[in-house]
Amino acid sequence: MLVLALDTSTSTVTAGVVDLPESGAPVVRAQRVSAGARKHGELLMPHVLEACAEAGVALRDVDAIVTGTGPGPFTGLRVGMVTAAALGDALGTPVHGVCSHDAIAREACATRLSGNMVVVTDARRREVYWAGYDAEGYRITGPHVEAPAVLVERLAGFPSVAAAGEQAAVTGLPVIGPATPGPAGLVAVAADVLRAGTDPGPLRPLYLRRPDAVEPGARKRVSA
C-alpha cells in the first residue's frame, strides 16, 4: 500500500511517500522536511510534489493519505489538515488523521525503551503540548497543554526514562529523537486501520485551546 503522509503541527513542514507492507514496519520511499514556522502554506504542496517525484509516483497512485491532527497551533495545523482533506476529495482517496505526538512516540520507541516516555512540543504562549506513552509508544495520558513548570511537577506522578519532541529538553529527562512527526511514524500509527481498509473518521484537529476570535457583542449605544 502506498501512503502519502503530511504533518504541519509543529514548526516543521513534513511530507513523505511511504510503502506500508502487509506486515512489518512502514518504509519511507521519499520525504521532504523543512523548518518553517511561518511557511507551512508555502512549503507543503511543493514538498508533496517533490516527494512524489523522487519516489517515482503520481498523486493518483496513492492509496491513502495520513495527516497529523496535532496538537498544534491553529494556523499551521490547519494547513496540513486542509491540504490532506482537499487532496483526498480531489483524488477520491481516504484521509486518516492521527495524533502527531503519537507519531513521534512510535518512532522514538523503536529504540526499545525500558520505561515510559513523554513527547513535548511547542504550544507557544510560554506553554507546551505534552503526552505520556508506554515503552511501546502507546499513549497513556494526554495530550495536554500546560506551562513547562507544571509539566515537570506532573512528571513526578508519571515516571519516565526519556523525552522526545522539539521541547523535550524542558523535562530534564534524556532527550531522544525524533523532534517532530515523520512520515514513518505517522503511517505506523494508522497502520492497523490502513491494512484493515477501515473507513476513516472525521478529521478533528487537536487544538487544546479555545480560539482567540470571538463573536462580536451587541453594538454599544451612543448617546447624542
Rank of each mutant, 00 (worst) to 15 (best):
A169R: 14
P94D: 07
P211G: 10
A191I: 04
A191P: 03
F158L: 14
P178V: 10
A110C: 11
G80R: 11
T141L: 13
V189H: 04
P216Q: 07
G172N: 04
L113F: 00
A168S: 04
R125F: 06
A191G: 04
A162Q: 09
V150A: 15
L186R: 07
V119Q: 00
A110H: 08
E107G: 04
R139H: 00
G165N: 07
E127F: 08
L151G: 10
P181F: 09
L113A: 08
G172H: 01
Y207V: 11
D212M: 08
V161I: 11
T198L: 13
Q167N: 12
P94I: 03
P94T: 09
G165Q: 07
A164N: 12
D89A: 15
I140H: 10
E153T: 12
E136D: 15
T121Q: 12
G88M: 07
D89H: 14
D122Y: 06
L206S: 04
V98A: 11
P143E: 03
H96R: 13
A135Y: 00
Y207D: 07
G115N: 09
P148A: 09
V119A: 01
E136Y: 03
L113K: 05
L194H: 11
R112P: 00
V150W: 05
E127T: 13
R78L: 06
V119W: 00
C109I: 02
A131S: 13
R78V: 06
G92M: 09
V175W: 03
E127A: 13
H96K: 10
T198R: 15
Q167K: 15
V170A: 08
V145Y: 01
D199Q: 15
V82N: 12
H96V: 14
A131L: 03
I176L: 06
A168K: 05
E153F: 02
A184F: 03
I140N: 12
G137W: 01
D212E: 15
D192A: 15
D134T: 00
L186H: 08
H144R: 13
Y207E: 10
A105I: 02
Q167V: 08
A168Y: 03
E153I: 02
P94Q: 07
V214F: 01
R154Y: 02
